[in-house]
């Protein structure tokens, strides 16, 4: 058996890979929300000074990466690898950001699970000794995602309450072994779970079983229990999917308690229209790379599991009547 794998699906990090720096940026709506004081930059509008929303999303990822690197006084040529993902065709936000920053790129697609997919892979590369320092990032933008997956942004079609609001912004982390910050302790790469749901306006119900599958695997493999964590957060299950996940886990004997939350419900205030809650790669990226890492550094949280969930469909598959395959990747971060 592989030396650093425990159980069926989980990698155990032994050499002290840490998130030594992080940054998160958001659009105006995110800036008015709960993370208001914790985001590193809030743009006055969704264009972020660019001509198109695609360029705006790219600008946000560029800024998040730049700020995360500068916070610990590193320069781009000291970064060995850049792992990034987004929701757009051919992962353009990641690739175009890498074009600007000139750091060797590995583009990764995991839909909204990209934040933990890139963090896991980056940590593995540092752990294995292929890199000293890796930068990981994920981004999404409400308007680019609407265009990509749904209707024109100004189209007046009514959305149901189960719909979610794609978060605009980007989060980036710098991984290395020298420095301070939360340690990446365990990571579980999830299986693709498909419970036959087909409604793209109800991703929470589609993704909940994937989150449950990965959380169960992560707990089984590590031998941890939910109460061993100060916080377990899912990426973007929102107000429909999160209670489903809670009850499914209870059925399997895991009482998740009050410390089980969802990033999609930690971004917007209740009076901000976000339907069931936030979604998109930036949902977990913003919460993790601003609020959660700050809280861990402040000593308020010492062990956190982040389970980023992703719906792996595209507009062609759901128009052809295919159901929505989903995935979730879990990472345990620890302060020591």
């Amino acid at each position: 058996m592989a030396k650093k794998r425990i159980g069926q699906q989980t990698f155990s990090f032994e050499s002290g890979v840490r998130v030594i720096s992080s940054a998160a940026v958001g659009g105006p709506k995110e800036g008015e929300g709960i993370l208001h004081s914790e985001l590193d930059r809030i743009y006055p509008d969704n264009y972020a000074g660019q001509e198109s929303w695609e360029k705006a999303e790219q600008k946000m990822m560029e800024d998040a990466v730049e700020m995360a690197i500068k916070k610990i006084s590193l320069s781009n040529d000291q970064i060995d690898i850049f792992l990034a993902g987004d929701l757009l065709n051919q992962n353009i936000s990641a690739s175009f950001t890498a074009r600007t920053h000139q750091i060797p790129l590995m583009g990764m697609f995991g839909a909204c699970s990209a934040s933990m997919l890139t963090l896991t892979t980056g940590a593995m590369m540092v752990e294995a000794g292929f890199c000293d320092i890796a930068v990981v990032a994920a981004s999404s933008h409400n308007s680019t995602a609407e265009r990509q997956y749904r209707y024109p942004t100004e189209y007046g079609g009514q959305k149901p309450d189960t719909a979610q609001w794609t978060v605009t912004g980007s989060g980036a982390g710098v991984l290395g072994t020298k420095g301070s910050g939360p340690r990446v302790r365990f990571a579980t790469i999830g299986k693709v779970v498909d419970m036959g749901l087909k409604n793209p306006f109800d991703m929470g119900s589609a993704m909940a079983p994937a989150a449950v599958d990965t959380i169960e695997a992560h707990l089984n493999d590590t031998g941890n229990q939910p109460h061993d964590y100060d916080l377990i957060v899912t990426g973007d299950l929102a107000s429909v999917g999160h209670p489903i996940a809670t009850d499914l886990l209870a059925d399997r004997g895991y009482n998740m308690g009050k410390n089980f939350r969802d990033c999609g419900l930690m971004i917007y205030r209740e009076d901000q229209q976000s339907f069931a809650g936030g979604s998109g790669c930036a949902s977990s990226a913003l919460v993790v790379y601003s609020h959660l890492i700050d809280e861990m550094k402040r000593g308020k949280l010492s062990r956190v599991m982040v389970v980023a969930t992703g719906a792996l469909m595209n507009p062609v598959t759901y128009q052809q009547g295919e159901s929505i395959p989903c995935v979730a990747h879990a990472v345990t971060l620890e302060m020591d």
């Binding site: 309450d161 498909d194 419970m195 036959g196 109800d202 119900s205």
Partner: peptide, 19 residues
Amino acid sequence: QEKEQKDYQEFAGKYRPKP
């Protein structure tokens, strides 16, 4: 698998706010 999916879809339906 189909039965599992069907059961889940019924179960998840209870959590959706009614239109």
